[in-house]
């Protein structure tokens, strides 16, 4: 192994670059592009929060949608029913989801593998049942339509941003929240805490042997992931102009898991790529055919056999192979 300092590519603050590139969408694209970009940004945050469990800690959670849903319900109910401003409703949504994740996690981390996965699914179904049945608070099956937009006057006050429509302004707000959340998660994954989580993923017995309290670390990861999922949920409720019981139903858990695996769960940016791919594919394919689930199934099948590392993994392997070939040519 050769030791080398950070390359140029590593020195570039990629979160910032992606953020700035994404920020140009409302200025360059149409209303529909802004719509898709908002959906991608929020889905990306949700998928990265799941990957904190899936890729980083090695915990397979089938109930991640519960925290997304709680976040959107908390934010939606606070903003619509009680008229609370977004600046308070968003942290409340994150805290609400994290708090619930703490309770659920307390039980779940006591189990491993398939039992852990099934218990997370069970809890998410309980959340769904509550959201579906508690008509007075959650609106039951018809949900809470008409969640108001937050006050976005401050975005309009920024020079250059005053011409944006409300959808564009909300996109800017969502993008800022998503970028801060992604940066925070990036720090968490790279921190000593994150390293311990990776150790647990690789070998929980050995981690316990070297003195790591595995359950407590897993619980911490569970709570952090739940909190960020809650933020994504809060944004999505406003974006979709309402909160519905479908947000907490298990197929959404599967969808976010597909995004994560599709993008590549060994990579921090994998779920982001997965989210963008799935959202764009969905809207492209559904405009040609009704058989979107069939197409999705085929794509996944190919992916799992040909690129087990996801899109990012596949590209990384390809690039590495090209490099090696050029190295060899240089040597000859």
């Amino acid at each position: 192994m050769r030791l080398r300092g950070p390359t140029l590519a590593q020195r570039v603050p990629w979160t910032l670059v992606v953020f700035l590139a994404a920020l140009s969408v409302p200025f360059l694209g149409s209303r529909y592009d802004v719509f898709l970009a908002t959906q991608i940004a929020i889905s990306a945050l949700f998928a990265v929060s799941l990957n904190l469990l899936l890729g980083t800690t090695g915990l397979v959670s089938f109930g991640h949608v519960a925290y997304f849903g709680i976040g959107s319900y908390v934010c939606g109910i606070l903003m619509k029913t009680y008229g609370v401003p977004f600046s308070l409703a968003l942290p409340a949504a994150a805290l609400g989801s994290a708090g619930f994740a703490l309770v659920v996690g307390f039980f779940c981390v006591r189990l491993i593998k398939i039992y852990f996965a099934m218990l997370t699914l069970a809890f998410s179904q309980i959340v769904w049942a509550i959201c579906f049945k508690w008509n007075e608070v959650t609106g039951g099956d018809q949900g809470l339509p008409d969640v108001p937009y937050p006050n976005l006057d401050w975005i309009a006050a920024i020079p250059g941003f005053d011409g944006l429509r409300i959808g564009g302004q909300f996109y800017v707000l969502a993008l800022i929240v998503v970028a801060i959340s992604l940066a925070a998660m990036r720090r968490i994954v790279a921190s000593p805490f994150g390293r311990v989580l990776t150790t647990i993923r690789e070998n929980p017995e050995r981690a316990a042997f070297i003195g790591v309290n595995v359950r407590r670390y897993e619980l911490a990861a569970f709570v952090v992931a739940g909190g960020f999922a809650g933020i994504a949920g809060a944004l999505f409720g406003i974006f979709n102009r309402g909160v519905f019981a479908d947000y907490v139903y298990w197929p959404k858990s599967a969808e976010v898991m597909i995004m994560t695996i599709l993008g590549g769960m060994q990579y921090f940016w994998g779920p982001v790529v997965g989210a963008a791919t799935l959202v764009l594919l969905n809207q492209q394919i559904t405009s040609y055919t009704q058989y979107w689930p069939f197409v999705l199934g085929v794509i996944l099948l190919v992916l799992l056999f040909v690129f087990p590392g996801g899109i990012v993994g596949g590209i990384a392997v390809g690039v590495a192979r090209l490099r090696r070939r050029s190295w060899r040519r240089l040597g000859a």
Binding site: W14, V18, S24, G29, D33, Y267, V273, A276, V312
Partner: peptide, 22 residues
């Protein structure tokens, strides 16, 4: 890892491409 970041950025930029209106 760094290469993946570039690719991620490229993918996000792809959604900037405008779609044709009817």
């Amino acid at each position: 890892m760094s290469r993946c970041r570039i690719l991620a950025a490229a993918c996000l930029a792809a959604c900037l491409a405008p779609f044709a209106a009817g």
